[in-house]
């Protein structure tokens, strides 16, 4: 006996239902596995390094030959370069973002500029490092410096900040602008006093992501800042070598002769991940405080 169309259809439906259940289970399993692996990864990095961590390690000078050296100058340089590069990139990036979101007319020139921003955002970090190398080491002839590292890093961050700012600003409702303009404010006043404050959440999140990325960047620093430091702490000289913690980890892993290289590397990795956690926390703190206040 031939099965009726209805029965065939029902069979197909049952199959589809079973398939749905099976696939849902697979999606759950796959995703939980990945989340579990990511958790393991974080635990591994932090666990291995934090066990041995001491405060001295963070501020001591590194030692080329004997065990027990610290990472002081490298950690200092990391923060110094990060602050310098952000203070160059943030005003420029936000300015460019404001232009693209508020002023840019819809024409070919704007399209070209936007392509440039996205193009610059996709330039591999090693190419920006090489650019920094050509500019500062060959062209200006200042050698591998903190200054060169900061400016090259700022170039890496600029397009990301621009895009984040543009996105955050274009989320601001049009009514806010109109209300401000209707009260007699100029366009600049509107942007600075109304649009930017309401876009602040998005911009801060963007800055925090950028800061994390900049803190961990190594290819740019290696080529434009070098792999060592001036060798003593609290050196604010812009023209001393600009090696940072990520570069130091690379150096330790590949070339160092110290016997406790492995331990230093483990601890440096943990310090970096902790700093990233701290950075993303501290920059987003104002957002949480604002949200809290609004919710009450």
């Amino acid at each position: 006996m031939r099965e009726s169309l209805f029965h065939q259809h029902r069979k197909k439906n049952t199959l589809a239902l079973i398939g749905d259940k099976v696939w849902t289970a697979l999606f759950w399993a796959g995703s939980l596995l990945i989340i579990f692996l990511i958790g393991c990864l974080l635990f591994l990095i932090l666990g291995k390094g934090l066990k041995l961590m001491t405060l001295d390690f963070l501020i001591d000078l590194p030692d080329e030959i004997e065990a027990g050296g610290g990472i002081g100058p490298f950690l200092f340089n990391s923060i110094y370069v990060l602050v310098l590069s952000l203070s160059i990139a943030i005003p420029m990036g936000i300015g460019a973002g404001i232009y693209l979101a508020e002023y840019a007319p819809r024409n070919r020139f704007t399209e070209l500029v936007r392509t440039c921003v996205e193009g610059l955002a996709s330039v591999p970090s090693i190419v920006i490092g090489l650019f920094g190398y050509v500019l500062f080491v060959e062209y200006f002839d200042v050698g591998l410096t903190v200054l060169g590292a900061s400016i090259s890093l700022a170039i890496l961050n600029l397009p990301i900040l621009t895009r984040v700012t543009e996105e955050a600003i274009s989320m601001v409702p049009q009514e806010l602008r109109e209300a401000s303009l209707a009260l007699g404010a100029t366009k600049a006043q509107t942007i600075v006093r109304v649009v930017l404050p309401s876009a602040l959440n998005g911009i801060l999140t963007g800055i925090s992501l950028t800061a994390c990325r900049a803190f961990g960047e190594s290819a740019v620093i290696l080529l434009a800042g070098g792999s060592s430091t001036s060798g003593f702490m609290w050196d604010f000289n812009l023209l001393s070598q600009g090696g940072t913690l990520p570069v130091h980890l690379w150096y330790i892993q590949s070339e160092a002769l110290v016997e406790d290289a492995k331990e230093i590397a483990d601890k440096s990795a943990a310090v970096m991940v902790l700093t990233i956690l701290f950075l993303s926390f501290i920059i987003r703190l104002p957002i949480w405080i604002r949200e809290r206040r609004f919710n009450r």
Partner: peptide, 14 residues
């Protein structure tokens, strides 16, 4: 987001 933030050098080291 946190994974994006972890330095590439740490991934290489792991």
């Amino acid at each position: 987001d946190l994974l994006v933030g972890i330095p590439s050098i740490v991934y290489g080291y792991l």
